[in-house]
């Protein structure tokens, strides 16, 4: 039993920094937001492991549901291409962000 519980801690602790790094370094913003939703889900599992079900409930209600919906809505409005930043500063431009009227 202790091995399984410790395995939970080790796995979550190993994956979360990696996931945060991927969220901040991928080119496509849709991918970043999808990874961020998965990140919030793993965070509520961490709070279950830390014996804080109240925080897990709040995170499940507004962290997983509301934040992802808000981010996706905004991306649908402004496009998901990130042509700047550390990840793509040396790449040739892949076309302008679509200047759709809103």
């Amino acid at each position: 039993m202790n091995i399984s519980a410790g395995g939970f801690d080790i796995l979550l602790a190993a994956v979360l920094p990696l996931l945060a790094w991927y969220v901040l370094s991928t080119r496509d913003l849709f991918k970043a937001v999808a990874l961020f939703i998965a990140y919030g889900l793993l965070f509520s599992l961490i709070w279950v492991r830390l014996a804080a079900p109240d925080v897990a409930l709040a995170e499940a209600a507004i962290g997983a549901g509301l934040t992802g919906a808000l981010l996706l809505d905004t991306l649908g409005r402004i496009g998901s291409r990130d042509t700047s930043g550390a990840a793509s500063a040396m790449e040739p431009e892949g076309g302008p962000p679509d200047a759709r009227e809103s």
């Binding site: 509520s44 079900p53 409930l57 499940a60 997983a64 992802g68 996706l72 649908g76």
Partner: peptide, 21 residues
């Protein structure tokens, strides 16, 4: 209860994705 909230709000992101994004 946490699982119940997850089950309730799990579809919200997909609906927002399909309808708006």
């Amino acid at each position: 209860d946490v699982a119940l909230v997850f089950a309730l709000l799990g579809g919200l992101t997909v609906v927002a994705f399909v309808r708006r994004a």
